[in-house]
Structures are given as C-alpha cells and as structure tokens.
Design a protein around this nucleic acid. Structure first.
Length: 496
RNA sequence: UGCCCGCUGGUCAAAUUGGUUAAGACGUAGCCCUCUCAAGGCUAAGUUACGGGUUCGAUCCCCGUGCGGGUGACCA
C-alpha cells in the first residue's frame, strides 16, 4: 500500500555527526520505516561561512555506519532534488519575489551595526531584543525614496518577512501536544533572505519541506520557537504545513544543560565512539532509549525490531541525561554476542597503532591475536579496551606485584609449580584442553586444590592475579614462554 | 526581563487517558557461582518537587509556588 509519509533528516555540514543529530535522524528513520514511508536526506548549507569541507561526507558516512539508509538524498538524487540548499537558490528566489510582490515581505537596508546598536539599547532598557520596523510612519512614496537612497549609497538589502499583527499561531505537536504563540512574540519582522542572497533557515526549510512533500517533521525541542515563524510563511504562501513533533533534548548529566559542542566532559560525536570501538547497533540501541521507551521490560533490540515496534506516541516530553555507564553496558551486551572476527576487525587499527600486531604478520600470528580477542571480548565494553588486556600477552608481563607474591607465599606453591612445569614440558602440544587436564591431574596427585592450586600457576605464568580463564591464558603464552616463566618463578621461590 | 516547555529513585523510564504492594533497565550494596577479574543468577536500598483544591479515591485533572530547560541571529 502506497502512502504519502515522507520525513527528512536535514543536517548542516558545519561539523561531524553529533549525538543529538544522530538521534533526530534515527527517530525520523524509525518513523519512516515503521509506516513504510520515505526517508530523505537534505543538506542545509545556507550558512556559507560555517560550512566545513568534509561536513557532508562525514555526516553521510556516519549515518551509513549506523546502518541507516535513505530513499532520496544528495548522494543518490531523487524526484525532488536538488537535495542541497545551496543548489536551490533559484527556487527560493522565486518565492522571495512572490512575497515581495504581494507586499508580504520587504527590503531592509538597516546595517548589522545599526541593528546591533538598537539591540543593545533595548537590552539596556530591559526590553526583549527585537526588530523595529525601519519605515515606521512612512508613506509608500517615502519608503521608495528611502530605499532608492540606500541603493544609491551602494547598500545591499536583506529581505524581511512582514509578521502579521495580532495573530496566534498554533499546532498540535506530535510530542508536546497543543502549542500556541502570539505573532508579537517572535521578535519582529525576520530576515528570509540574507545580504549574500542566501535564504535563511526559517525560510528555506518551509520551501523545501513543501516542495519535497514532507509530511512529518521530527526535530529537536530547540526548534519550537522557530515553528510559528515557519507557520507564518506557510500561511503567506497558502500552503499546508506538515505535522511537527519536537523531541526533548539530550542533556549533560553533570551540567544539566543541553549537549553542546563546546562541552568537553562528554564525547559528543558519533565518530568518537566509532573510533573507540563501539558497535553501531549498540549506539543505536542506546540513543533510541534516550527519549523513547519500548513497551515491555526489555531494552535490547535490533534496529529492525525497533522499526517494527516504533510508536511516536511513546516519545518522551522531558529531556534525558546522557549516561555513559549505560552506554558501556549496552555495548558490552552486544560485544559478548558478536563474532570475534568482527571485534578483531574493529580493534585492528588500535592494535596496529599500539604496536601489538604487525601489518604484515603471518596467518599464524593473526590467528593467535584473533584468539586473544575472542577470549577478552566479553570483558570489555568497547573494542579499544582490548589493548590493555592484550598487551601483557604480547609485550611480556610486568613484574609480579605484592598481591601476586602473596599467592606464592604458601609452601605448596613450589610443589604445584614444579609439578606443573614437569607435566607441561612433557606435552608434545599444548592447548587449553591439555592445560586444564594437567591442572586437574595435579589436583588428583597432590591433593592441592582451589586457590592454592590455581593461583600460583596464574601468577607464575601471567604475573597477574586477575585475568580470563587460566587454561586459555596459558595457551596464549605458548609452551615455550610458559616454561620460561615457570622456571623464573621456581628459581625465585627457591632462593627465598 | 518576554515567550514556550518540562518536573516519577543518582540516571533512563512504565503505569490500558483517577483505583497498581508505583513495572523494568543502568548504577550502587550484599549473597551465590568461581583460581581471580568480569559475565551470569538472586536479593536489597532508593522515587511521584512543594502547597492548595476537585474527588469516595490523585503520579494522572485544576490553581499557585519552586526548580530546571529551550528560545530571543543576516546560525541551523
């Protein structure tokens, strides 16, 4: 069944993909896929000064990494293109001209300096900063004259939208319920076309959403106050606005304020988590739970399942704090169940950088490292952490610390180690199964068991009192190194 | 200061639109498992911001107070 649901994610290429934007993208995506509508990407690059070279590519890259796909966009085109606002200037111009002609907008020659001065004055007298109509009290002819003079001086105008007086703009927000603003609260006639000819956000977004037949707009709470302005433009052009839904923002746990890019106490960008080795499915899961809740008691779901059960009515009205501990837990849930090969791939750049493996390592070496990763992946909450676990196995362990010495203090330790050394040396081939069997045989023959049996071996071989399964750890060191470490430990105990 | 919004444990949150012992998850603490650390299992502590209404009965409806947030650009 075909339907007309079309939603969009409209980033501006002024930076990398921010957590908050990722969430906006995700919820729009979920909505589109759930209702079998279309998901569209549009690039809002009207602020030519702030655009950064890699911005668009980076945004799209990270969205792909998250596993999102779209039906129309700057990279794949579509029936309603172009999908970059910078390429739609002719389209905007047409509507600017239309509003100008109808007297619903006008050219304004006040300079930024003049405006700035006025704002400061308003602030000084405890008024809310707002634009004051610069042609107040002038007749049609006087206005024309004033504009001609400005033009003669070489001034370039901006175009301002004439805000209707005494009207109320309201809508039923899909998240927040009924919202209403009086026209006088928007701050006066606002700019719809900048001096450089580019449209402003509030204007372009209306034109594009209408022309691209966008049916529903989910965006951050910070856009609530833009909505009345946009409603005015829909009205002026005689268009039907889409449905709006304003989602509560994500706030910083510590400051209680919305996540801002300047705030460095939280990692804010998807890319940073990607680099640390977080899994995209875990990121999605975590982000979706920030401001939305599933029906039952479970919280771990795949994107596909979220699409299926998504219900925009369950979007939260109040802001959610970003909790890194929960993210770590969620990622670990996924990490445990993911293929070791995949974790290996994700951790590879870090392993290379830390010098723990060589780019040209042979197959055997690679396989060894893969087993290392497999052994440790359940312990970590993100792939980067694997480095600390693997390091002792590659670079050799550090000295035995006090806690380790304590485990070796009992006289039975030397018996265990001697027996273990003898039996390991006798093996043709040492793997985890063999090692386990060997430990069990010592228990049977000597009667030593539990901590007194296991700990001396762990400490002697790995020099650590903590770590994963002992047989596997021993296997990873290899027979030769294991014997070397055992000899050293036995020597040390004898010389005491 | 104007306008708009929100407020359930430390955090995320549920509660068939007034009736529950106020779910569940993260975190915290304890116990179990165990050679250790994790993981896993079990248990515990901890909440409807405050004050008034309306009602037989308010987390839910109304009013006020408080606290928090958003916005107030030729940024988006």
């Amino acid at each position: 069944m075909a339907n007309n649901i079309r939603v969009r994610y409209a980033p501006s290429p002024t930076g990398h993909l921010h957590i908050g934007n990722a969430r906006t993208a995700l919820f729009n995506y979920l909505f589109a896929r759930h209702y079998k509508g279309k998901f569209i990407i549009r690039i809002e690059d009207t602020d030519t000064k702030r655009n950064i070279a890699d911005g668009e590519r980076s945004q799209l890259d990270n969205l792909k990494w998250m596993g999102l796909d779209w039906d129309e966009g700057p990279d794949i085109g579509g029936d309603y293109g172009p999908y970059r606002q910078s390429e739609r200037k002719d389209i905007y111009q047409k509507y600017i001209d239309e509003l100008l002609e109808k007297g619903l907008a006008y050219k304004s020659y006040e300079t930024e300096e003049e405006l700035q001065a006025k704002r400061e004055e308003q602030r000084a007298t405890h008024q809310m900063p707002h634009y004051v109509y610069e042609y107040a009290g002038m007749s049609e002819d006087e206005i024309k004259k004033s504009q001609a003079e400005a033009e003669a001086k070489g001034l370039k105008p901006v175009v301002r939208f004439r805000v209707p007086v005494g009207k109320t703009y309201e809508w039923d927000d899909m998240v927040k319920g009924h919202l209403s603003f009086e026209s006088k609260t928007v701050g006066g006639d606002f700019v719809i076309q900048k001096r450089d000819g580019m449209p402003t956000y509030n204007f372009a977004v209306v034109i594009d959403d209408h022309l691209m037949k966008i049916s529903h707009v989910f965006r951050g709470d910070d856009h609530v106050s833009n909505t009345p302005k946009q409603l005015m433009i829909y009205e002026a052009l005689g268009w039907q606005p889409p449905k709006f839904g304003h989602m509560a923002l994500i706030i910083n746990n510590e400051t209680g304020k919305k996540l801002s890019k300047r705030d460095e106490s939280v990692l804010q960008f998807i890319e940073q988590y990607r680099d640390l080795g977080y899994l995209p499915e875990a990121m999605n899961n975590f982000i979706i739970l920030l401001g939305w809740s599933p029906k039952g008691e479970d919280e771990i779901y795949s994107l596909k399942q979220f699409v299926k059960m998504y219900d925009e009515k369950r979007l939260s009205k109040s802001p959610a704090a970003f909790d890194r501990k929960k993210l770590a837990w969620i990622n670990n849930q996924y990490m445990k169940n993911v293929d070791a090969d995949r974790v290996f791939d994700i951790a590879m750049p870090q392993l290379l950088e830390a010098g723990l493996i060589d780019k040209h390592a042979d197959a055997e070496k690679m396989e060894w490292m893969r087993r290392c990763v497999e052994l440790f992946k359940r312990e970590i909450s993100y792939a980067h952490q694997i480095i600390d676990y693997v390091k002792p196995f590659v670079k050799g362990p550090k000295d035995i610390d006090e806690a380790g010495q304590k485990e070796l203090a009992d006289p039975s330790a030397i018996t265990v180690l001697s027996e273990f050394r003898k039996r390991i040396a006798a093996l043709d081939y040492m793997d985890a199964t063999n090692v386990l069997r060997t430990i069990k045989s010592i228990q049977k023959d000597t009667g030593i068991r539990g901590r007194k049996l296991w700990m001396p071996i762990r400490v002697a071989v790995t020099h650590e009192t903590v770590g994963p399964e002992l047989p596997e750890s021993v296997e990873l060191f290899g027979q030769e190194t294991t014997l070397k470490h055992l000899d050293a430990a036995i020597d040390m105990l004898k010389n005491k």
